[in-house]
Design a protein around this nucleic acid. Structure first.
Lengths: 181, 181
DNA sequence: TGGCGTTGTCAACACCCGTTGGCCTACAGT
DNA sequence: ACTGTAGGCCAACGGGTGTTGACAACGCCA
């Protein structure tokens, strides 16, 4: 046997993540993914069952938020901005979710769940009033996702031109205000 | 003849805008648009030539920004936030562009042009330094588009629950800072 | 060496898409 | 009343999609 089953499964998954991140669910065809993986399309079906299941496997995402309550309170905004920039550049899972969540209700629901589960608790811990926490988490999400949209997806030139430090400088106070003031 | 040529063309365009806004370019099929308009798919081709041209006709957008320099300088942030909320709720063109610009390079380029041409000049007029203007316009775009993404596209429940006044209250100072400070 | 399960290939199915051309139908002008 | 034309419908083409099943090559184990 040329390769182990697990090996080719990993090769397919890597190719799938790249295609889904670049093209979104609809335009990323199984044939194209298989071609990238230098393999037959039927192998994708054998190992993942269906395009839906392949996407589900490719779209597993963890925000990996640090423990914001362990930081000096006045630095959480900048820390969040810096963390999301890193996360977005090292994990194509972010792009996968955003590129298809915009036109796919199932994926949108998944994004809602991720942000509620992972951004909600730290927001609640930071702002005193638990009733305000979800709104504040939502506001922070709007700025973080908006930056990602403009910089990595739409690639607005002035936003792409910003350095990491500049973005942290501008978004830090915004997130700080949304979460703690 | 049942209807005038212009009438059915308008009916098709209305149906197309709704479908494109709801589903994006790929998932909005000509057959579905024609069914909504209660007409044969071939009529769409006769009146608009191709799906691409139909989309181009459906995706004409004008931000209709007010003259920000005519307002008291300390109110431009809130004015911008309020204006974009209105614009987003009354014109499905915004949704059309966002839903397909995310996975379509041609439409993304169109969005870049719209924001550069329409948000750039007011930003340059507001902040003293012309060299900083594009970056500031880009930052404002990131917050405005991020809010639209979370509220109207992804429908994050806490963001949907926010009232118009609350959004203006939270985004106003952010946009004010991006544009004028 | 002979068998057998695993890995991979090939061809095809059934479906949906954008698009096309021919045909029908109803009105306007004479 | 007849005809020309414009609005509308129908059936089909060619291509691409996800998915399936039969078949071939390889390497382990007895």
């Amino acid at each position: 046997m040329r390769r182990s089953s697990e090996d080719t499964k990993a090769v397919i998954l890597t190719a799938a993540r790249e295609r889904f991140a670049a093209d979104g669910y609809e335009k990323a065809t199984i044939r194209a993914i298989a071609a990238d993986a230098e393999i037959d399309p039927s192998m994708v079906m054998r190992y993942f069952g269906s395009k839906d299941k392949l996407f589900a496997a490719a779209a597993e995402v963890d925000l990996r938020l640090p423990d914001l309550t362990a930081l000096p309170r006045e630095t959480v905004g900048a820390a969040l901005a810096a963390h999301f920039l890193d996360r977005w550049e090292e994990d194509e899972g972010m792009m996968i979710l955003l590129r298809t969540g915009v036109t796919n209700e199932v994926v949108a629901e998944r994004m809602r769940g991720i942000f509620a589960a992972q951004l909600g608790p730290p927001a609640a811990a930071l702002c005193g009033d638990p009733a305000q926490a979800p709104a504040r988490a939502g506001l922070a999400a709007s700025q973080v996702l908006g930056m990602a949209l403009c910089r990595y997806v739409l690639r607005l030139p002035p936003v792409v031109a910003l350095s990491r430090e500049e973005i942290v400088h501008w978004l830090g106070p915004t997130l700080q205000r949304y979460l703690t003031e």
